[in-house]
Nucleic acid binder design. Structure first.
Lengths: 182, 182
DNA sequence: CTCCTTTTAGAGATGGTGTTCTAGAATGAC
DNA sequence: GTCATTCTAGAACACCATCTCTAAAAGGAG
């Protein structure tokens, strides 16, 4: 019932994604997003009550998509594969990776809406479970090997807008193994 | 001759630095910077012709200060010390590190002024010289060990506003050694 | 002291952005 | 067909930030 939507919610988010990946969060004005989609700004506001709500939704979508593979790798008790998930995912999701890894939430969203509070709950739980199974590891060390190093390895290339080359993978793996084995 | 300045150029830059470190680049409006310094906005514009010019100057000052130690370590042919420079400098220059490492130039400065074009010339030259002396190394590998990994190790802590703990240093050193020795 | 320069001081013009509001178009239910 | 509902469409509003402009203050040179 009612008029069918001409622009889906995901289409709006994709437009916002493209704008940010191209010109940074500052360029992600409602006007720019609407223009990219060929929609009037009113339609955007009809879907998402505010700019903050729109960008928080986008951020959450990106984070959720990214974390799936990471969580799965941790759940199968494979730290090296978890570490490699970052470069791999970046290669196949260049724009989303740029938005997720190059910026902070606060750079996109002035005031983070309460309903999006626990974006990282699942990932945190996966890390906790992993630690639980490996009492000789501390959380900081695990984060360094599986999050921080892959992130650093990938960042420069995301800044260029180019996919991270496959040469970095063995460096990440080696680092992971070296740091995590006593 | 002429009226003596009540606010020095560095004072203005320091005020901008504090504002950004506290609330992000979006909060670094001329009004906020002036208010923090207790100066009227007109005085800011008298010194720095525009907001872009002010922030570009700040960025360049940060980058220059940061790169001194890095360049020196590379010049003395010590890659591990170059890698450790990042966490060390972050500890003693928390605010500047946050501005320099957490944001992109484009996040601060809409249009980078031409006169600040070559911020990284010296650092690039130091890297080139190092490579020249170690023909078995390629540049990407050196960047990974001395730039990317330390950067990743430090980022989460800068986001918290806390100095990176000393526990990360041996991980960085180990990574550096492992990746750079054939 | 009188000129000249530099800087402070802040009011005001300008432009752009988030948001709201009203009107109209498209569809399903009856 | 008529009504209710959902969405498009874009004009209008309010706000905020950058930047400009004018006047006055503070010192040095002659």
């Amino acid at each position: 019932m009612g008029r069918p939507a001409k622009f889906s919610e995901d289409q709006v988010l994709d437009a916002a994604l493209a704008v940010i990946a191209e010109n940074g969060p500052g360029a992600a004005t409602i006007g720019a997003i609407a223009a990219r989609l060929g929609a009037p700004s009113g339609s955007i506001y009809h879907r998402f009550g505010s700019r903050d709500l729109l960008l928080a939704t986008l951020w959450t979508r990106c984070a959720h998509r990214f974390q799936q593979g990471f969580i799965a790798a941790l759940a199968s008790d494979d730290a090296e594969s978890a570490a490699l998930h970052t470069p791999r995912w970046c290669r196949s999701h260049l724009d989303e990776a740029a938005v997720l890894l190059l910026y902070r939430r606060q750079d996109l969203v002035a005031e983070w809406p309460a309903e999006f509070a626990s974006v990282n709950r699942e990932a945190d739980a996966a890390l906790d479970a992993f630690i639980e199974r490996h009492p000789d590891l501390d959380r900081e060390r695990l984060l360094f090997a599986t999050v921080d190093v892959p992130y650093g390895a990938v960042r420069r290339h995301l800044l260029n807008g180019t996919p991270p080359p496959s040469t970095i993978d063995p460096w990440i793996t080696t680092t992971c193994r070296t740091v995590l084995t006593p």
